[in-house]
Simulated scan of single mutants.
Amino acid sequence: MDAIDLNLLPALDALLAEGSVTGAARRLGLSASAMSRTLARLRAATGDPLLVRAGRGLVPTPHALALRDRVQALTREVQEVLRPADDRLELGALERSFTLRANEGFIRLFAAPLVGAVLDAAPRARLRFVPKPAKEAGPLREGAVDIEIGVLGDFAPEVRTSLLFRDRFLAVVRSGHPLLSRPMTAERYAAARHVVVSRRGRFTGPVDEALAVLGLRREIVAVVPGFPDAVRIARQTDLVALIPRSCLADASLMEGCASFALPVSTPDIAVSAMWHPRMEADPAHRWLRSLLMSVCRPPTD
Rank of each mutant, 00 (worst) to 15 (best):
G105S: 14
E104Q: 09
T237E: 08
A34V: 11
P139F: 01
M274W: 00
P277G: 02
L288K: 09
L89Q: 06
A112L: 12
M279E: 06
L6A: 08
D146L: 02
L50G: 03
A11F: 00
G138E: 12
G105T: 11
A24P: 14
S290M: 11
P113T: 09
G153M: 12
L180C: 02
G92W: 07
L51A: 03
L152V: 13
R160I: 00
S20G: 10
R278V: 14
A258Y: 04
L50S: 05
M1W: 11
P228R: 02
V71Q: 13
P62W: 11
S181K: 13
R53D: 00
P225N: 03
D268E: 15
L170W: 02
S36D: 08
A93W: 01
A234N: 09
V130R: 12
S31K: 07
E18Y: 02
P299I: 10
V271A: 04
G29L: 12
L253M: 08
L58A: 09
C257D: 04
P267Y: 10
G143T: 10
R26T: 14
D154Y: 12
L242H: 15
P228L: 03
F129V: 05
E255S: 14
I233T: 14
T46C: 03
L291W: 10
D282H: 08
R166A: 12
Q72K: 13
M35F: 08
V213A: 12
E95A: 04
L180S: 10
A251Q: 11
A171Y: 00
K132W: 10
F203S: 10
L119D: 06
S175T: 10
P131I: 05
L242Y: 14
L216P: 01
A190K: 02
L8V: 10
L291N: 13
S246D: 05
N7C: 06
H276Q: 03
M35P: 08
F98Q: 09
E90Q: 12
L51K: 01
P49R: 01
L164A: 05
W275D: 12
V231F: 04
S33C: 04
D250G: 06
V221E: 11
G29K: 07
R76Q: 14
D250P: 04
E255W: 14
R128E: 11
Q79P: 00
G143H: 03
G226T: 15
S272N: 06
V151E: 07
A32I: 07
V115G: 05
I4T: 09
V172P: 00
L42E: 05
S294Y: 09
G57Y: 07
T46Q: 03
A281C: 02
R27E: 14
P263M: 02
A112M: 05
L100P: 09
L9A: 11
V207T: 15
Q79E: 15
V223I: 00
A190D: 03
E142T: 10
L262F: 09
R37Q: 12
T266F: 04
V207L: 08
D5R: 12
